[in-house]
Each structure stands twice: as C-alpha cells, then as structure tokens.
Amino acid sequence: MSVIGREAIPKRSKSTLKLPKFTWAWLSIPSLLLAWMLIATQFPSYILPQVWDVAEEGYRWFINGELFPHLWASFLEEVGGFGSAIVVAIVCGFMAGFYKGFREYIVPLNGLFMAIPPIAWAPLMLIIFGIGYTTIIVVIFISAVNPMILTIMEGVLTIQGSEVRAARALGAKKIQLFLYVYLPASLPFITAALRIGFSQAWRALVAAEMIGATQGLGWMVSMGGEIGNSRQVLLGIVLIGGVSWMFERLFFRQIEKRYEVWRLN
C-alpha cells in the first residue's frame, strides 16, 4: 500500500518551473468581487457594505480576538458531529455492503432521513437538549451520516469479487482480506463519502447555529441580521464559504488526487 504516489507512475519528463496555465476559473472569484463592488456602489454602506468594509470588519474581529471563539465553537461542533458520523457510517456502510439483510434494513431508513432537511430536527433537539453543543452535534450527525452510509455501501458493493477471489487464492484469510483488499479498494469511496459528509455537516452546522446557538459562524450571521449589521452578516458568509472551500481544496482534493492514479471508472 506504500507506493501510490509518484514512484508508481511511469517516468515523465522533468517538470520545469512554469506559471500554471490560464483557465477561465481564474476569473470566477474576481468577477464576483467586481460585481459585488459595483452593486454596492448603489447602496448605502449599512445596507450593502463594500468589499473593503467587510475586510475591515474581519480585521477588527480578528484583532480584538472575538473571531476565534466562534471559529473554535463551529470547529468543535463539526468535529463532534462529523467525526461520530464517520465512525458510524464506516461501520454501517461496510456492514450494509457485506450483509444483504442489513442492507435491506438500512437503505429505507437512509432514504427517509435524507428526505427530511436536517434543520427540521433542530427545534426538537433544542427541546430535548437545550441550546448548546449537543443539539448542534446531533443535527450535524443526522445530516452527515446518511449519505455517507449510502456512499460507502455502494462502494463496497462495487469491489470486484474477482479481486477478493484472487486474494483468497493467494492465501489471504478473513482479516487480511479486509485489511489488504476491502480497505484499500474502498479508500476512494471512503474519501468521497467524507467529502459529501463534510459538506452536509457544514451546511447543517451553520443552519443549526442560526437557530440554537450562542456562538459560532452561523450565530454570527443570524445575530448580525438581528442587530442589522450587514458587515457582520457578510463577514460570516465569507468565513463559512472560506472554511469549507479550504477544507475541500487542501484536504479532500489532495487525498482524492492520490487515488485517481489507479482508480477505474
């Protein structure tokens, strides 16, 4: 399992230092900012602030240290809800992939839960757990775990029987089959599941914080709305998008790239 990276690819010509090639993607964010600035000129700053106003607001939150408790709270909730969803989804996903009976049992439940927008659970959880971490973590968990179970299950089902057979013919016993065949073969779709789960969890997190929290990025936005501070609202939105985008780019994309080398469609 060690060599998945560079060594594994047939030799390529030496890459020289070059500017990355232009793609139209370079224009997407700048054009959005430009549009924002243009539209903002038509409104007073307290309704639609300019880009630099929001940047300044961010700087202020950053300097006086107010920002971190919110980021930290959101981060903890995401870790709690998403983390427990990962564990449960891996266990249930593999079981559903391996055992037909369990699959038949759990798929309708997944479908049912996925049909309900996770935020609809928030009021009930508020009643049960009150305002705070638990409520939000439960809502995140519900939203992330179901698509993840399905993704992992589908993946396990696509693992080729022939690979398992080959491994058995080479003397692999049960645990070895899991460790050396099922696990590596499932890494690509576990990654896919993590990615889906993360974004589901993040959405649920923000939504839940807007209803049932006293801190966090979602709270920043909803509170900003209540007190009529559009700078704070926009700052919150930018941070919500930015954090998610960062995870996507720096984390999931990078993992996924490694499998693309051998992944068969």
Binding site: V3, E163, R165, A166, P184, L187, W262, R263
Partner: peptide
Amino acid sequence: ATLFPWLT
C-alpha cells in the same frame, strides 16, 4: 488479470 489496481 485480477491484479490489485492500488498496488504496483
């Protein structure tokens, strides 16, 4: 050939 695609 049922080679393991993730192994060299």
